[in-house]
Simulated scan of single mutants.
Amino acid sequence: MARRVVLDCDTGTDDAVAIMLAGLSAELELAAVTTVRGNVPVDVVTENTRRVLQLIGRSDVPVYEGAARPLERDDFPVPKAQLTGFEMHGTYLDLPPASGPPEDASATDFLITEARRHLADGSRFTLVATGPLTNVARAVRSFPPMTHAIDTIVVMGGGHAVSNVTAAAEFNLWADPEAAAEVLSAGFSDLLLVPLDATHRALLSRDDCSRLRAAGTPAGIASAQLVEQRIVGHDDSQPMAERGTAPVHDAVCVAALLDRRLLTTVEAHVDVETQGRLTVGRSVIDLHHRTGRKPNARVAVDASPVRLMAQLLNAFSSREPAPDGPVSR
């Protein structure tokens, strides 16, 4: 029986690869995608999400638009326009516009309805959150029993030794630190945190892109172009130790549901700084158990690029060839 999954995302480049992986993997039932402001404004996120689903023939998956601003703040800790340097997502993905409107219900309302349904019949679902955690925090605030309807929540965010938006913080947790702190303390029975420390270990290369493109499918071609876009962005502004490679953070989170050996994890207590002038949004990961606080997460500390590629190729090599066309921006 396929594992029922809901994705909560802010679709730019790596979210798009994650959506395709979830939507095409036989082991997963992609029940819905909820959208949140993050990489781009939420209306753009919603359109990008629907374009990706349409590309892979999964327009049947409903998309629910979510939060346009953080949980407590009027904007990011620093308006994104004032940040310098790193930007790779562009705005709209260069795919055909989606046909028809998104769902009428909000992302928060959908998450609560989904949780109630599962609690009523004694089942549970998996939530993969690859953007700011605003929608999830709002849903838990409105319906605390939601945590009992979720078997695993996978959160892409944070970093122990690695950051990307400030010297201290990773973007997803920094973009809404109050929401992230609430989600981490909400009492989920199994919270898997996938920080930059792990995703920066599962780097994809131009050779990997060639292998994806050779699959000859819509997802293979699109993912190759999106990863190549990420490689250019990283080489330009945040180069990896090996140039010509890039992380595809959100895809790692979905692939980890398909291959338990993809990630190496440790149990630790994780909190998020919400006040620090220099450290707002920083994930405080107590890897050495200095605080004595009970672990609230499984934290990924390593990830396998070989196993990530195996999952991408397995999912993206089983559909009909795609027409030619750009997908980069």
Rank of each mutant, 00 (worst) to 15 (best):
G158K: 00
S328A: 07
M20I: 05
R3H: 14
Q311S: 10
T35K: 05
G325T: 05
I19F: 08
P101K: 06
A2D: 10
A179L: 05
G216Q: 01
P295F: 04
F188K: 02
A222V: 07
G281F: 07
Q54H: 09
L55Q: 12
I221S: 13
M146G: 05
L287K: 08
D208G: 03
C9P: 03
L203F: 03
V154W: 11
N164M: 07
V40G: 09
P195N: 10
R282G: 12
A241T: 14
T46S: 10
L53I: 01
A222W: 14
S318D: 11
D60G: 11
A255V: 00
R230N: 15
H148D: 15
G157P: 09
G66P: 03
V63R: 00
Q82M: 14
V6L: 02
D8V: 06
L263N: 10
F125V: 04
L312M: 09
H288S: 11
R329M: 08
T34N: 02
R211L: 06
L93Y: 15
D109Q: 05
S318M: 12
G159V: 15
L71R: 06
D197C: 04
A181T: 05
R243K: 07
S185V: 10
S328C: 08
G292N: 04
I153R: 01
C253G: 13
S123K: 02
L278Y: 13
S210G: 09
E87P: 13
A16D: 11
D151C: 08
D74I: 01
T108G: 01
P62Q: 04
S185Y: 14
V254A: 01
V6H: 06
T11W: 00
D94I: 12
R138D: 03
A169V: 07
R277P: 00
T199S: 10
